[in-house]
């Protein structure tokens, strides 16, 4: 599993602090042996969903399953019927693309953390840049499963869960607004948070925060002298 996850990508080290710490070496996740409870849960899931499953992983005791896009809705039905997951925790999306303008370039924003500029896809991999993921739980059996699926990059569409979990309504509207993922079968998809005239999908990585472009945060580097300090002219 996690076959296409490359080794730890070499981080472009902008903050010249290499001597200070080597924190990333503390506990790199070495594809941990699957917890038996999680494995049993996955077996149930796979038995019911069949070949819709692409990949799975155990991420700190939570089962993460990646399913084929056309099995997305069936995965919800299976989770609800066969895994007793009666509780919908959330539905959201993720954009695996590295932010196009990494911090630390000439100009621009220097205060944001530097992310690796290679595209990696998390614990269960992905085919493309965009993914939709959801977490459902059981209130009686006390387990939960995270379900992921890939969506196409231009014109992403996936089936709606509203008929399985009515609470999916708002979550899908949010995901549509934030990532531009369309949910076919959703009764009426429209803006949830932002005013109707808002343009862009804020959570996509290529959506830049204008305030940061215009006026980068000075960061931790240069601290202004306090008013009481002995400066040239104390014009308090």
């Amino acid at each position: 599993m996690a076959d296409e996850t490359p080794d730890t990508p070499d981080t472009p080290d902008a903050s010249a602090d290499d001597a200070v710490t080597d924190a990333s070496a503390v506990a790199v996740e070495e594809v941990p042996a699957i917890d038996p409870a999680v494995a049993a849960l996955f077996e149930r899931f796979e038995a019911a969903l069949g070949d819709g499953v692409v990949d799975h992983a155990d991420s700190f005791g939570t089962l993460v399953v990646r399913v084929k896009p056309d099995a997305w809705k069936r995965a919800a039905e299976v989770a609800r019927a066969d895994l007793d997951c009666d509780y919908l925790s959330f539905i959201s999306g993720i954009d695996w693309m590295p932010a196009p303008k990494p911090a630390g370039d000439e100009g621009g924003d220097t205060s944001a953390p530097v992310q690796p500029d290679t595209m990696t896809f998390g614990v269960t991999g992905s085919d493309g840049r965009l993914q939709v993921f959801a977490h459902v739980q059981s209130t009686t059996r006390h387990w939960g499963v995270t379900i992921k699926t890939d969506v196409a990059d231009p014109a992403p569409t996936v089936d709606s869960w509203v008929s399985v979990y009515p609470g999916a309504d708002w979550h899908e509207r949010e995901c549509w607004e934030m990532y531009g993922v369309d949910f076919s079968g959703h009764p009426k998809i429209r803006h949830l948070y932002l005013p109707g005239e808002f343009e862009g999908n804020p959570l996509r990585k290529d959506f830049a925060l204008l305030a940061r472009e215009v006026k980068p945060w000075p960061g931790l580097v240069d601290v202004e002298p306090m008013p009481g300090d002995d400066t040239e002219e104390g014009d308090s």
């Binding site: 924190a23 990333s24 506990a27 990696t120 939960g144």
Partner: peptide
């Protein structure tokens, strides 16, 4: 804890 916190690669769901 190291002075500069760098979190290793991974995904976690906490509730």
């Amino acid at each position: 804890v190291p002075r500069i916190i760098k979190v290793p690669e991974g995904e976690v769901w906490v509730e």
